[in-house]
């Protein structure tokens, strides 16, 4: 009886462990997309919590202003993969960057293998060449990591990428996108007012007018709050479905 119970307990334990693992990596050993989505994913716990948040804030703000998604992932090990293969699989699976622009950048760090890789999305390959990313690894990341200054390495590398991308198409496209977004908001706003006017014209009696008036207040409030939510840099909206074709560089420390 007890042995049966033991077996049962063991089975339950195994099951929970399996499901726990399944949440972290898929069958190919590639981590699942983080939920809620984040740009700084320190699975190997190489940075402190405050360091992590500082980088997250910086990358989220950069994503908000340019739609370019720079993602950093640290893992304990990449298993049997080469680091560039692992990184491409991960970047594609998560969909880093926007779908139509492929403007994602993925920095993958494998703690135990002491390997680092930068993958550049298709859309940014002409702005950050393979050699540029090689320089970022050789001149910034590797020297810092050799001294165990992981935060410094990641922070300076992302700064360098951001400054390298300055003045490229991303800023202008994002402005255009923002304009488009504003236009859409204006259109929705006008359409709402129009609908309200029409409905109040067609409806008869005081009661109906006050009800639709209330509706107007509510919808305008909802619209503006979601708008400011998109503009603030407090949280990351999610990955855009961008893809990678193998551009970038890798190295070890």
């Amino acid at each position: 009886m007890t042995s049966l119970l033991n077996k049962y307990l063991f089975f339950i334990l195994l099951l929970t462990q399996l499901t726990l693992q399944a949440q972290v990596v898929d069958k190919d050993g590639i981590p699942e997309k983080p939920s809620p989505p984040r740009l700084m994913n320190d699975y190997a716990e190489m940075l402190s919590i405050t360091e992590r948040e500082q980088i997250e804030q910086k990358l989220v703000a950069y994503n908000d202003s340019t739609s370019t998604q720079i993602c950093v992932v640290t893992v304990n090990t990449i298993g049997d993969y080469s680091i560039d293969d692992y990184a491409v699989r991960l970047g594609r699976k998560w969909g880093i960057g926007q779908k139509d622009k492929d403007n994602g950048i993925l920095i993958t760090i494998s703690k135990l293998d002491r390997k680092v890789d930068i993958e550049i999305g298709y859309g940014l390959e002409s702005h950050i060449t393979d050699y540029d990313s090689k320089e970022i690894i050789d001149d910034i990341i590797v020297p810092a990591f050799k001294q165990n200054n992981f935060y410094e390495g990641v922070n300076k590398a992302t700064d360098r990428i951001i400054s390298q991308l300055q003045g490229t198409f991303t800023a202008s496209t994002s402005k255009k996108e923002q304009d488009d977004f504003n236009n859409i908001m204006v259109f929705i706003f006008v359409a709402l007012i129009f609908i309200i006017i029409i409905s109040s014209l067609f409806s008869s009696g005081k009661g109906n007018i006050t009800v639709s008036g209330g509706g107007w207040n509510w919808s305008s409030g909802g619209g503006s709050s979601s708008w400011s939510g998109g503009g603030s840099s407090s949280s990351f909206g999610g990955f855009g479905g961008g893809s990678f074709g193998g551009g970038g560089s890798s190295g070890s420390w």
Binding site: D84, D85, V88, D130, K134, F244, G245, G246, G247, S249
Partner: peptide, 17 residues
């Protein structure tokens, strides 16, 4: 060195493609 790095990554690109 630049060429070596580019070649290495291009082999990657070929494999992925």
């Amino acid at each position: 060195q630049n060429l070596m790095n580019e070649l290495e990554r291009t082999e990657n690109r070929i494999n992925i493609a």
